[in-house]
Each structure stands twice: as structure tokens, then as C-alpha cells.
């Protein structure tokens, strides 16, 4: 954690007054949030609290006309990205590992990784980037010809993370990083995320497991019914306060 330095005060990502709607249904209420370069932010909250919607809003997946839209402001590295197309936001340096992994199921591991380097700025360094990812996940190198639909959940999650890394992002959003994975696999995935973070990538992680969210994060946000109801450094927050915020109990 670097608090000092000239860039410490300008956040990498700044979300302010963000509301999101699915048709008429409002899913986010005036969410304000900022993430500094090099930080790990964990977002926890019950199902339907708006965690995924927040991540989707950041990567431009909520700009779907009448079906879904956002209001408010999102800035990345000082530039406004709210309302811009997902492709442009990814080109700017944000990417997401989506919930349920969403791999290209009929493609091999290697093809999935290559698909992640579609952007013109990534194509020249594709081979080298892929080798870096194989170094991070040696298992994927062994299985590079395998069609991903036949792999285990943990291996698929590694492919999904690798695919996201192929675009050389500055900020990665992990939606439900450990959902449906075995404890040993989760342990391994989190070790890799730590390595990715050490390589200078800022991370926002949605995590169901509260203890794990607290242990990995520099900062934690608790969401409830479309709002952030509590945020702070793990050391500053008592487990009781987090639990209360999670379940929406008024006493702190």
C-alpha cells in the first residue's frame, strides 16, 4: 500500500452518484466509490444487493437503452467512461472476469486466451503475454489444446482470469471470484490474484465469503439494497458491524 507519492490522491477509478436501472426497476442508488492505483477492494453483500450491477455499470454493460441504463458519473484515470461502449472501456484498461466465467465454451484454452487479445494494441505482444499467463498458470499450458467446456470449474476460472489478463488491464473486476469452487481451489485462485495484484494490477473483488474478503482486501465495501452502507479498512471494521450492515440491521 502506497499512501505517499504524487498520484496517491487521484483515484484510478471514481464512481460518483451512480444509479442503475433495469427498465423501470432501480438497482443502484447514488453509489459513490473510489479506488486508488494498486488497491484491492472487496465488495460484499447479499444476493440482489447490486454488486454485479455495479461492476457491469463500470464496464459499460448497463448501457442497453430501454433494457438497462445508468445515471451518474464514472471516471477512470481521470477520463469519463460512463455511458461509453464496453469495447472502449476495455481498451482504456479495465476488464472483468464475469460471474459464471462465461468462457467461449467450444474453443480451446489457447483460443480463449487469444480471444482476450483481440484489441489492436494487444495483438503484437500476444505470444509474449500468453507465455506470461502460462507462467502464472502452468496448468493451463499443459491443457492449452483442451476445449474449455471439458475442464473443471477451477481450471475454467483460471482460463477466465488469463483471458482477462490478455488485454493487459490496469484494473480487473472479479465478479463472484470463488462461487462454486472447492476450498483448495479457492485458495489457489486467491494466491494467483495476489500475484496479479503484486504485478501492479488494481483489483475489485466480489466475494461471498466475508472472512476471505476481509483478508485479501485493502478496503471493504458492504452493499445493501443497491447502496453502499459501510466501507473502510478491514482493520477498522468490526465483524459485528459488517454483519449488521450485510443484513441491514440498523444498530452499529
Amino acid at each position: 500500500m502506497s499512501i505517499s507519492g504524487p498520484d496517491a490522491d487521484t483515484p484510478l477509478l471514481a464512481v460518483s452518484g451512480l444509479s442503475a436501472y433495469y427498465g423501470e426497476l432501480r438497482a443502484l442508488y447514488d453509489v459513490t466509490l473510489s479506488v486508488r492505483t494498486g488497491e484491492v477492494l472487496s465488495i460484499i453483500g447479499a444476493n440482489g444487493a447490486g454488486k454485479s450491477t455495479l461492476l457491469k455499470s463500470i464496464v459499460g454493460m448497463m448501457n442497453r437503452g430501454a433494457a438497462a441504463h445508468i445515471q451518474g458519473d464514472i471516471e477512470f484515470a481521470g477520463r469519463r467512461i460512463a455511458g461509453r461502449a464496453t469495447e472502449d472501456i476495455v481498451d482504456a484498461g479495465i476488464t472483468m472476469v464475469p460471474e459464471g466465467r462465461r468462457l467461449f465454451a467450444r474453443m480451446s484454452v489457447e483460443e480463449n486466451l487469444a480471444a482476450g487479445a483481440f484489441l489492436p494494441r494487444c495483438r503484437a505482444g500476444l505470444r509474449q503475454r500468453m507465455d506470461e499467463i502460462y507462467a502464472l498458470f502452468p496448468k493451463l499450458h499443459e491443457r492449452r489444446e483442451q476445449v474449455v467446456a471439458q475442464m473443471s470449474g477451477g481450471e475454467q476460472q483460471m482460463v477466465a482470469i488469463g483471458r482477462a489478463l490478455m488485454s493487459s488491464p490496469r484494473l480487473i473486476l472479479f465478479d463472484e471470484l470463488s462461487l462454486g469452487l472447492a476450498p483448495a481451489v479457492i485458495e489457489e485462485i486467491y494466491r494467483k490474484v495476489r500475484t496479479i495484484h503484486e504485478q501492479g494490477v488494481t483489483c475489485i473483488i466480489i466475494e461471498q465469503d466475508m472472512r476471505r474478503a476481509l483478508s485479501v482486501a485493502d478496503r471493504v465495501c458492504v452493499m445493501l439494497e443497491g447502496s453502499i452502507v459501510l466501507s473502510g479498512r478491514p482493520a477498522e471494521l468490526s465483524e459485528a458491524a459488517i454483519t449488521a450492515a450485510y443484513f441491514g440491521q440498523t444498530h452499529r
Partner: peptide
């Protein structure tokens, strides 16, 4: 690859920078 990716999952393809 982009054509195949979009045919597989058009919602996620933009996350690869595909239009």
C-alpha cells in the same frame, strides 16, 4: 476468432474489445 466468440457469447465478446 471474434466471429466465433460473438456467436458463442455476444454479451461477453465486448469484454475482449470486440465490437
Amino acid at each position: 476468432r471474434a466471429i466465433r466468440a460473438a456467436s458463442d457469447d455476444a454479451e461477453i465478446a465486448p469484454l475482449m474489445g470486440m465490437r
